[in-house]
Design a protein around this nucleic acid. Structure first.
Length: 460
RNA sequence: UCCUCGGUAGCUCAAUAGGCAGAGCGGGUGGCUGUUAACCACUAGGUUGUAGGUUCGAGUCCUACCCGAGGAGCCA
């Protein structure tokens, strides 16, 4: 007989007939003449209740089935006379596939997120983490659907990069040298003998690759892992995370902001449609205000505010900030929080930042003071998107690379696309896990990625 | 890297002022029951994060370290 997934049973109307269920025992309750076994197979949040009566061949074994064991059950779907479920499986055979001894760490009770992080290999077997990772999967597929429907091409940008000054971020070195005894030259390590013939690192962004391809295929995006070696200890940072990075040729900052808003709104709407049951778990047990938050994200227009005006709002606010605000200073967490959570209470896109606090590739505005940068900030999390119109003018870009103290030679290919048929273009990076935090109400980024990598922690 | 809080049974936590280490859940045994985080009774389960110190006596006070969490910074 062919296996039936529990999600299929619950979505049939009405469910009926013979089924073969395969899954893991969540709980078992005994009655006088039978045992109630609740089985979950990960296909959906709901379990299915199996009723096994004492006439079954393996009833002695069934009575001992422990939480966490894997089983196969054949039986007939019937209307349930009990409360709490409309249907149940009247078992004809129950087979133990894999036993779970009493050292199985997951109980029927609620566990703390901190404890579950220590058993990240088992936590997807809980209701909450099962829901999280079903939503994560749906969100990833919604990303591809969003861009596919709009004629964007998906680019696989490299994970290992050779540019050693991509930005101020700390990089993870990639080497095939014997780190205990590396070849030396002039007192330092001789990377000319390394695998690539020079220093290499894990990527911190697919943006540069995406720009090159946007100036060939028009509208493109990357969606892959990125790596930051910062020694950050916050609930919003991990060392390995996923970013969605669209890049559009013939697009200015306004078009960029339009896409950012459209993307966040569309993805949120898609998850609201497709993952109702899983989202409801978060609304009930994690964040009671989640439905309201998601409604705001989907239905309200986002505020668009020049950095300069944000500074004015912050300066005239009654609240006193720990860090003073002035034009030219980067906004601190407390300032972002004030704008999204107190002043506007909805997503805010800030744009036209001072060029002194933004990287070299952002397009200089006519005022010679700001660049065409934009950040999308959301309540509760802060920045989930950062992007800009890129500097497409060769001479200005060269000057800015030099002013940043970087090596123009290293970026010959980045400059080449400005040299040959340059066009205005724009793009941004969306933190995939940050968006997941927004969608689920999860307070910690480590709880929306399967196996989080943080300073001092790489188990699993 | 800095600041704050925490670490007690498998899990979640309690333990007055420095004075016999406990409860619920989970496990085991028995009972009851179309049960719903089932219920009732009994039962096993501990190097109180590690190392030192103060004290007649330390889970509790002191020092160092380890681990976790929150905040800040860092953060294309």
């Amino acid at each position: 007989m062919k296996r039936t997934k529990i999600a299929t049973v619950h979505s049939s109307n009405p469910p009926s007939g013979q089924v073969l269920i395969k899954g893991w025992v969540r709980t078992r309750r005994d009655s006088k003449n039978f045992s109630f076994i609740e089985i979950n197979d990960g296909s959906c949040l709901k379990n299915i209740q199996v009723v096994a009566d004492d006439g079954l061949a393996a009833y002695d074994q069934i009575r001992k089935l422990a939480t966490g064991s894997s089983v196969e059950v054949t039986g007939e779907i019937v209307a349930s006379p009990g409360k709490g479920q409309a249907w149940e499986v009247r078992a004809e055979a129950v087979t133990l596939v894999g036993d779970a001894p009493d050292s199985y760490p997951l109980q029927k009770k609620r566990h703390s997120d901190e404890f579950l992080r220590t058993i990240a290999h088992l936590r997807p077997r809980t209701n909450k983490y099962g829901a999280t990772f079903r939503i994560r999967s749906a969100l990833a597929q919604a990303v591809h659907r969003f861009f596919g429907e709009r004629g964007f091409y998906y680019i696989h940008s490299p994970i290992i990069t050779g540019s050693d000054c991509e930005g101020a971020g700390e990089l993870f070195r990639v080497t095939a040298l014997d780190v205990d005894n590396p070849p030396k030259i002039g007192g330092g390590v001789d990377y000319s003998q390394d695998f690539f013939g020079r220093e290499a690192n894990l990527t911190v962004s697919g943006q540069l690759s995406a720009e090159l391809f946007a100036l060939a295929l028009g509208d493109v995006y990357t969606f892959g892992p990125t790596f930051r070696a910062e020694n950050s200890h916050t609930r919003r940072h991990v060392a390995e995370f996923w970013m969605v990075e669209p890049e559009m040729a013939f697009c200015d900052l306004d078009g960029n902001m339009d896409l950012a808003e459209d993307l966040v709104r569309n993805l949120t709407g898609a998850i609201r449609e497709q993952c109702k049951e899983d989202l409801d778990l978060f609304a009930r047990f994690v964040d009671k205000s989640l439905p309201q938050t998601l409604q705001t994200v989907v239905e309200s227009d986002y505020i668009r505010l020049p950095y300069r005006e944000a500074i004015d709002i912050l300066r005239s606010a009654e609240k006193t900030f720990e860090f003073p605000v002035s034009f030219g200073s980067d906004l601190q967490s407390e300032h972002e929080k004030f704008l999204t959570e107190v002043h506007f209470k909805k997503p805010v896109i800030l744009y036209d930042y001072p060029k002194t606090i933004k990287p070299f590739y952002m397009r200089a505005n006519a005022d010679d003071e700001t660049v065409a940068a934009m950040d999308l900030l959301v309540p509760g999390i802060g920045e989930i998107i950062g992007g800009s119109q890129r500097e497409e003018r060769l001479d200005i870009l060269e000057a800015r690379i030099k002013a940043a103290g970087m090596d123009v030679e290293q970026y010959w290919w980045y400059l080449d696309v400005r040299r040959y048929g340059t066009v205005p273009h724009s793009g941004f990076g969306l933190g995939f896990e940050r968006l997941l935090m927004l969608l689920t109400g999860a307070a910690n980024i480590r709880d929306v990625i399967p196996f989080p990598r943080t300073p001092g922690s790489i188990e699993f």
